[in-house]
Write a protein that binds this DNA or RNA. Structure first.
Ligand SMILES: [Mn+2]
Ligand SMILES: [Mn+2]
Ligand SMILES: [Mn+2]
Ligand SMILES: [Mn+2]
Lengths: 217, 217
DNA sequence: AAATAATTTTAGTCTTGTCTAAAAAATTAT
DNA sequence: ATAATTTTTTAGACAAGACTAAAATTATTT
């Protein structure tokens, strides 16, 4: 059994590995968890003891199979709860993350699988992220950043890279949501900003924005 | 804001006050929380600081209005989650308590009130206990212990005094559930056991059992 | 190849919540 | 009223998880 804190470390390392591959640095974990590197060192020693990750001094860490399995369970819980909040409790997609951060730590063998049944085995969470099934399996969907789309090309919004309330509210304000068609009208090479057509409206978005929107094209 | 541990103390003291009135002893709190009296002393000092209870050395504690309000919130959450688990996730009444013990600590202004809406503002939890509304109000239902019912009198089961899985499974096994009519056929003065008619079947139950079933008559 | 900078680890401290053992106070029995 | 018992509090310790400051290691410049 893992403590709330241990679970948060596992999840963070899992997400970091998804982006950067094996060998996650102490500092990057510290940044993600908004804690100090020294605290991370303490904790990863403990997690190495528990054999959910491999740790060599100064070399960063990598999850073991067991560690990945545990992390996947937490991600599954997080995303299923997010679906529940949006589908059943009238939460909007920018309100769910913080509550799901708490709910993902509830321990009950039955709870999460029944929730899955109740929700009809959803494959995606409200932000377009895949939900692992009971066995931890999920299909990776084809997606790329809007920032990589060339001028005059069209894509469909299928996810976001940042689930913060601030960013999602910005998207709402500009009528950007999952399933929306987005056409890149022009790109400014100076600052990376681009003008896009969405909902038959032209808007200009910064590089930071287009770097946080996933599309399928 | 209160920690998980503080919330558990508040809830326990609240429940003890409901039975024994003001001035709850250190020992009784320790017993309820399965901890040591010395730990309780430490914690009630902290809670007194936070003005949720009044504490005088060697005199036990009493909740303040604020303390009662906080405790009621937690009870509301606990019972609403229990309803959710039974009504929506196919839990039986003996499976919900432990999960609700975890869920009751989730902090979200919106979550619990939306859950209330989603469930249709239930007035009772699966064990017949009243659910406080948004303002902490709830009606106390008229009920007494089955053990106080005289021979040949009839009552309707409206609640249980013990929500442990073991006890509830015993009730299931004997087809005793909320809403059931129960007639006391005879009472044995020697050990307090009684023979009752339920579901047109005669069964003999111990004093301990009849002391944990609430009826309306 | 040094020197400098950045990263990581260690050492020591703190807070929360718990515990045991001993002391103090209150209660009960004689 | 005194003694014995029970309850409660205090004192000191510990584990988890975090922090700061300093030391050790690795990476980057010059
Ligand atoms: Mn999320
Ligand atoms: Mn999400
Ligand atoms: Mn319960
Ligand atoms: Mn209940």
């Amino acid at each position: 059994m893992f403590s709330l804190s241990e679970e948060n470390y596992l999840k963070s390392i899992y997400h970091l590995e998804a982006i950067h591959g094996k060998g996650i640095s102490t500092n990057s974990i510290a940044k993600k968890l908004e804690t100090k590197a020294s605290s991370v060192t303490d904790m990863i020693k403990k997690l190495a003891e528990k054999e959910v990750l491999v740790y060599k001094k100064y070399q960063g860490v990598s999850l073991t199979k067991l560690g990945r399995k545990e992390a996947t369970k937490i991600v599954r819980k997080h995303r299923l709860w997010e679906v529940f909040l949006v589908e059943k409790l009238n939460f909007s997609w920018d309100e769910v993350h913080d509550v799901a951060e708490q709910l993902e730590h509830i321990k009950s063998p039955k709870l999460i699988d029944e929730l899955d049944v109740f929700l009809g085995f959803p494959k995606m969470d409200p932000h377009g992220d895949p939900i692992p099934d009971k066995d931890g399996k999920f299909q990776k969907i084809e997606k790329k950043l809007l920032s990589t789309l060339e001028e005059n090309k069209i894509g469909i919004c299928v996810g976001v890279n940042d689930s913060s309330s601030d960013f999602l509210k910005y998207l709402d304000k500009n009528n950007i949501s999952l399933g929306q068609k987005i056409k890149v009208l022009s790109k400014e090479s100076f600052d990376g900003s681009s003008t896009i057509l969405i909902n038959s409206k032209e808007i200009t978005i910064s590089k930071k924005i287009s770097n946080n929107i996933y599309i399928q094209s």
